[in-house]
Design a protein around this nucleic acid. Structure first.
Lengths: 234, 234
DNA sequence: CGTGGTTTTGAGCCCGTTCAAGTATCGTGG
DNA sequence: CCACGATACTTGAACGGGCTCAAAACCACG
């Protein structure tokens, strides 16, 4: 039966306790399951488009997405990334404010606005969780604003690496000291307000100074976190 | 009586319909009034400090504030401004994420967290409003991220002027075509990720091109909005 | 009418960009 | 499994937008 499936899906959800779904008690997981639909996306696939009517909210089960805006002349700026447990596709006056694209293969729960509204009337703590997570996103945006406005290329790249390392540490088991970036050099550049060339140059520079090691481009090991922290401008 | 005063205060509040307080029905304005305390701040006065325990949320009745972060070496970045009807001092893991300072004389309602929580249990629509406004703040942050990461000095300044003009138009009666900036050149620079000198140079440049007129530095008239929009990179 | 702060203007420099070439990496089909 | 083409990454040389440093002009306030 569908009911059982929905219940089982949310019951077994690996990120429930990290997501806003945490507000729904175990006994009501079937209501939760019925409000959402699990969708899979491939790397490079666009999930929502900037400016389109905001019909749903997405909560990530696995994978990473980027949020970005771009101009007609090609200039692109990534405004943030979202990881498992986090949501995306916040509306402003009824429309999505950024385009969202999958960086890896992604599983996400799609909650149509209307159903989510009904659900959060039954479980008001959903709203509390959403507010809490919104504040986290805002704090992350403030970090990025400071970084973009006031940091040098070197500081930007060092900050980025330390930030991603921390994300990995709190998301999953920290694999080992090596970490593999799901984003390309261009995407790192579009996040940090730099060009691909500069990101590449700074990375090889930091590698020459033995703060990190690069193997196969996307696989990076942070060798000297203390020096990196100093290089990041705190 | 205190009760009457509180009731009268919120009853007469000029920004109630634009603030999250809108969620409280007229018949319950006394509960609202008792949850908050009206505080006045002078220009230049610090209202909350980055990193301090987040004990209250503030809603602006009149005036403008700036939110900013700064480093020990003096680098400062303004992450946003807040206007009448908007709130500030969002917490992240229990602490304020930015310092907030009054740009003009400011009247703000201070809501201690505990009272606000009790109030929003009685009136859940408060949470809905807070979420809505949070999304607006996030959208504003995304705008600024794009601006900081990908726009030229000229585009930044033009965008800023148009943005502020729009704010004025929707906040109050649009005075006339002249507008007076509540922020100094340094504050504009700290908002746009530039130096004071560059802001000044770009402004005189735009004035030479007859897109605007400057009288007394803080009083600016936008003469050619269409050209400015083109100069802002859309 | 001075005094301190803000704004403007000027000259020179530097960080990050641009343009261009060369190298590694990955996916695909033979 | 390898050859191939496409894409991503690195490296180099030269340019330029915005910064730095310095000084002059302007303004508000006593």
């Amino acid at each position: 039966m569908q009911l059982m499936e929905a219940y089982a899906a949310c019951m077994a959800c690996p990120v429930r306790s990290n997501s806003f779904c945490d507000a729904v008690p175990m006994s009501d997981l079937d209501s939760l399951g019925k409000a959402r639909r699990l969708i899979r996306f491939n790397r490079r696939q666009t999930i929502v488009c900037e400016g389109a009517p905001a019909t749903a909210l997405f909560s990530i089960v696995s994978g990473v997405v980027k949020l970005y805006r771009s101009l007609a002349d090609g200039r692109t700026q990534i405004t943030g990334f979202r990881f498992p447990g986090e949501f995306f596709a916040a509306p402003h006056s009824g429309r999505y404010t950024t385009t969202v694209e999958a960086l890896t293969s992604v599983e996400a729960c799609c909650f149509p606005r209307s159903r989510l509204n009904r659900l959060s009337q039954r479980f008001p703590e959903i709203q509390t969780n959403l507010i809490e997570m919104n504040h986290q996103h805002l704090a992350a945006a403030e970090n990025q604003i400071f970084l973009l406005g006031r940091k040098t290329a070197r500081e930007k790249v060092a900050s980025f690496l330390l930030w991603y390392r921390e994300k990995l540490d709190q998301e999953k088991i920290s694999e080992d000291r090596r970490m593999s970036l799901p984003m390309t050099r261009t995407e790192v550049a579009d996040f940090l307000g730099l060009t691909t060339e500069t990101v590449s140059r700074v990375l090889t520079g930091l590698a020459r100074e033995k703060m990190l090691a690069i193997d196969k481009s996307h696989s990076i090991t942070l060798l000297d976190v203390a020096s990196l922290r100093r290089a990041s401008g705190l």
